[in-house]
């Protein structure tokens, strides 16, 4: 069964190579890595991939950049090396270090051929002229080279390494979750300086705005232990959780732009990988914010 799956995967990749369809490969990477949601200011009817979407964090407000092929305001002048360096090393073509609001910490695990296919796909999209907006950072981060410090101190670049002990499906799922979907970035609590808490990877967090980002480890009581692989796949397709609730907010965007558009085999592989994680007991508290009536009168 395992060999059959590996053979099928090999056959598929051979076919893709034979077709030489780098744009299709790039489109798949684009969907799985979900560039769309963050690089489009959909709340303000922004044009696709032209950036400007806000990301609030305790380390300031970040605005996603324009990744359309516009030569002046987008990435139209980037070479292949520039693009790979940005994703793999977290460094921009002009040598500046990115803040980890851009998940190069996950994308570094991507294979170089996938990065280049993604670049080809992005360059096939309409160019939009829109100047990038400066991040709004707290004073203490502006006076020191904080992004460079963070990168040097906490970031380890390197491609995803599979586990030969695991099935081809598991390995594919791990690659999709870790190198592409970057689920870990939002679903993991962080300590000082935004460093992930090692023993709570994927275990959920209550974010700055009070949103409960769920524990997606297979812990029976506090995570998704009761969800079957099929239930997770169904959630990716529909946004309907085990309780019947329909996703909203950021996760609805991620489902619409990315997860629901992936092939079933990808959705299944991701679910299989998530179900194999070490269960972490981490109840995400719902810190109910009470809005005062007086504010409305």
């Amino acid at each position: 069964m395992l060999r059959l799956a590996a053979y099928a995967a090999l056959l598929v990749s051979l076919q893709a190579m034979a077709a030489g369809n780098i744009l299709e490969q790039g489109r798949q990477v684009f969907l799985a890595a979900n560039c769309q949601t963050c690089h489009t200011d959909s709340d303000n009817n922004g044009k696709p991939l032209s950036g400007g979407r806000e990301l609030h964090s305790e380390f300031g407000t970040y605005y996603s950049p324009n990744i359309t092929p516009d030569k002046k305001t987008g990435i139209g002048n980037w070479s292949d090396e520039d693009f790979v360096r940005a994703l793999r090393d977290g460094i921009s073509p002009d040598g500046r270090y990115y803040y980890p609001s851009f998940p190069f910490t996950s994308y570094t695990k991507m294979r170089v051929d996938d990065m280049l296919a993604l670049k080809a796909y992005l360059f096939s999209q309409p160019a939009v002229k829109l100047q990038n907006r400066e991040h709004e950072l707290p004073f203490y981060m502006r006076i020191v080279p904080s992004a460079k410090f963070w990168n040097k101190r906490y970031f380890e670049p390197g491609e995803f390494q599979g586990d030969p002990q695991q099935s081809a499906e598991w390995n594919h799922g791990a690659y999709l979750v870790l190198a592409m979907g970057h689920c870990i970035e939002c679903h993991t609590p962080r300590k000082a300086l935004g460093v992930m808490i090692e023993d709570k990877l994927f275990a959920g967090v209550q974010d700055l705005n009070g949103a409960a980002i769920p524990n997606i480890t297979p812990h029976k009581k506090t995570g998704i232990g009761r969800w079957s692989v099929d239930d997770i796949v169904y959630y990716f397709q529909s946004g309907i959780s085990l309780s019947g609730d329909a996703a909203g907010g950021k996760m609805a965007g991620i489902i619409d732009d990315s997860l629901s558009k992936l092939p079933l085999s990808d959705q299944r592989a991701m679910a299989v990988y998530l179900k194999s994680l070490k269960p972490v007991d981490n109840q995400i508290r719902k810190n109910k914010k009470k809005r005062k009536k007086e504010e409305w009168e």
Partner: peptide, 20 residues
Amino acid sequence: FKALTDSCKGCHDKFRSEEE
């Protein structure tokens, strides 16, 4: 059924806060 749940999701996306 998918069309129905999509309309639930669409409304939550626009009109329901992520804050608990």
